[in-house]
């Protein structure tokens, strides 16, 4: 039984990410190579809050349309934009206006003309059916109280034969209840 309603969870997550500050490059350096990080805006690197490197495993090709669900400040969106090139598009989606502003700013400052950012929820993606070649997401699905709904939306927007590549945290055994019901743990 969930400890938080959908509205409570969304409020906690939005509040956390609206005020999140990037303090160093520790997270990014643990997940990405120096080569991947080179040329990216420092703000995108400092605000990397993912848990893996889905773009590395997504098999992106030049010309692909890729959607980054829960793009945050944009690090994976920019890495994807670099791989799909000027004939492709990288779409960043997030529910937090501040993160979207940062992602758009980072894309512009790095000179990516093939990036668009969109405000929305992963459970109701604002994209047409079969309009995307690849979906990536990094540490975001766990934030949803309706994970199957979010996955169904990714399935809907992907073209036939399209791919999804998600990084996330999974339990091998349960954590103590005190942690699971702690609001701070919710953002992981």
């Amino acid at each position: 039984m969930p400890y938080f309603t959908e509205a409570q969870a969304r409020s906690i997550i939005r509040e956390t990410y609206e005020s999140a500050k990037g303090e160093d490059r520790c997270v990014a350096q643990a997940l990405y190579t120096l080569q991947e990080l080179s040329g990216l805006p420092e703000g995108a690197v400092m605000l990397a809050f993912g848990v893996g490197n889905p773009v590395r495993h997504a098999g992106l090709s030049p010309g692909d349309v890729v959607l980054d669900v829960g793009c945050g400040a944009g690090i994976d969106t920019l890495l994807a934009a670099s791989r799909v090139g000027p004939n492709g598009r990288a779409l960043g989606l997030d529910m937090t206006p501040r993160m979207l502003e940062l992602a758009a700013h980072h894309a512009a400052s790095a000179g990516f003309a093939n990036v668009d950012v969109h405000e929305g929820l992963m459970e109701a993606l604002p994209f047409a059916d079969a309009s995307v070649d690849v979906v990536v997401s990094n540490g975001v699905l766990n934030l949803s109280t309706r994970k199957s709904r979010a996955l169904a939306e990714m399935h809907r927007v992907l073209r036939p034969g399209g791919r999804v590549c998600l990084a996330d945290l999974v339990l091998s055994e349960n954590l103590p209840e005190e942690i699971v019901k702690n609001p701070t743990a919710l953002v992981a």
């Binding site: 495993h57 399935h155 034969g161 791919r163 998600l166 990084a167 996330d168 999974v170």
Partner: peptide, 10 residues
């Protein structure tokens, strides 16, 4: 916990 990267396709 474990950090995983899952891939799948339509």
């Amino acid at each position: 916990v474990y950090s995983v990267v899952l891939t799948a396709r339509n």
